[in-house]
């Protein structure tokens, strides 16, 4: 299995692993999920119909309503949230979101994670050391 290691900066510590959900877009909060199921319900979203529960979310940055972090906190409280975030460019929405949901997150990596990682790859996130290990999904 081909492995790639990306190095970046901690946003929030901890370790977690799971399958990647990747978008080359910024990620919203309000109006994106059914919080009770973790399913993405937003029309036109790259992940529409997919479930974020247990996944490692890989995306450019946060966007949309300032309630962003509250939605990820709600997902976490319901047990339907992602296990980690890999963010091209952390902003105040994503920073607050991962702090509130207490899941490991890494940003400012040596390569754009949305270009290197594909949906379905297996991802290990070491938040404390800012390391993301990618095991490519074999086609």
């Amino acid at each position: 299995m081909k492995k790639i290691v990306l190095k970046g900066r901690k946003v929030f510590g901890g370790t977690a692993e799971g399958y990647a959900l990747v978008t080359k877009d910024a990620l919203g909060g309000m109006g994106v999920f059914d919080v009770s199921t973790g399913m993405v319900t937003e029309s036109g979203n790259d992940w529409e119909g997919k479930v974020v529960t247990g996944k490692v979310l890989v995306y450019k940055t946060g966007k949309g309503s300032s309630s962003w972090a509250g939605w990820y906190k709600a997902l976490s409280s319901m047990g339907t949230g992602p296990v980690a975030h890999v963010i091209t460019k952390n902003n105040s929405q994503t920073a607050l979101g991962v702090v509130l949901s207490r899941v490991p997150a890494v940003t400012e990596l040596d390569q754009d994670p949305t270009e290197v990682i594909s949906t379905g790859d297996w991802i290990k996130v070491d938040g404390d050391n800012g390391i993301v290990e990618v095991t490519k999904n074999q086609p």
Partner: peptide, 10 residues
């Protein structure tokens, strides 16, 4: 502790 049970230090 973390919700997922993973040990964390920061």
């Amino acid at each position: 502790s973390q919700p997922a049970g993973a040990g964390v230090s920061c």
